[in-house]
């Protein structure tokens, strides 16, 4: 079976303005809207399009988290994934251990392609895909904005600081998605109903033989320093005079 494995992370929704708890012990997440990490939605959309073009037969989505994470997996199933795996664990798992868990899932599912978001918008780590590719000893093509599959290879256009880089990688491989790879589809109501019947398997993390450990321990959270609100000028002339006075333009 030609299978794609897609990683899903449950994160505070993109539109929520996050706040630090008054005692600096963390970020307020109680009662806050949670969603699929936007880069992971792009990963799933890419997998769906590959399947729709006949390039894959099955799409498996997987996440690590508490039972609540089922909501995001159901959304992924409603978008069109065939099966979902919930690797159950109550506390946050760091990228290296996430990569170790996904390596176990790869051994089980034998995908020809693994697609992950390039970063999660909560921790902004941007590590898991690269770590997984290293542990798997397979290619990585990160920050993908275009993917073409043919003859057991992927040709991937990557968004890099210099512009666009193209890599050719042998499959299986790990891809991580950038924003412009695609625009994820909206979920329609009948699909949400159908998704309730799709298989969702819970796997206790401990059963995979991975023992997560916290290596990067947060000791304090704080809001960033705020910029002072400046002045409003009334014309281009006034603006240029102000910039000249500060020596910012000649």
């Amino acid at each position: 079976m030609k299978r794609i494995l897609v990683g899903i992370k449950r994160v505070v929704d993109y539109n929520v303005r996050v706040r630090v708890k008054p005692d600096g012990s963390g970020v307020v997440t109680d009662g806050v809207k949670m969603s699929i990490n936007p880069f992971d939605e792009i990963a799933l959309e890419e997998a769906l399009r590959i399947r729709e073009r006949g390039g894959a037969e099955e799409i498996v989505v997987a996440t690590i988290g508490p039972q609540d994470t089922q909501q995001q997996l159901r959304t992924a199933l409603a978008m069109g994934a065939d099966r979902a795996l919930l690797v159950e664990h109550a506390t946050p798992v760091e990228p290296l251990d996430v990569a170790r868990v996904f390596l176990k899932l790869i051994e089980r599912e034998q995908p020809f392609l693994v697609i992950l978001g390039k970063q999660a918008i909560d921790d902004d780590n941007n590590q898991t895909g690269q770590m997984l590719a290293a542990l798997w000893n397979r290619p990585q093509a990160t920050f993908a904005s275009r993917v073409e599959l043919a003859d057991g290879k992927a040709t991937v256009t990557r968004e890099v600081d210099a512009g666009l880089e193209v890599l050719e990688v042998d499959l299986p491989a790990v891809l991580t998605t950038d924003l412009r790879l695609n625009e994820p589809r909206y979920v329609k109501l009948p699909e949400i109903m159908k998704a309730k019947k799709k298989p969702l398997e819970t796997i206790p993390l401990a059963s995979l033989g991975v023992e997560p450990r916290q290596r990067v321990k947060p000791v304090r959270y704080e809001p960033p320093p705020q910029r002072q609100k400046g002045v409003m000028v009334k014309s281009a002339q006034e603006l240029v005079e102000a910039l000249k006075k500060k020596g910012l333009v000649a």
Binding site: D124, R215, V216, K217, P218, V219, R220, P223, P224
Partner: peptide, 14 residues
Amino acid sequence: PIYAGNVITTVEVE
């Protein structure tokens, strides 16, 4: 920085 720079965290690495 985390959360798009809206939170700064201090971490101790082991």
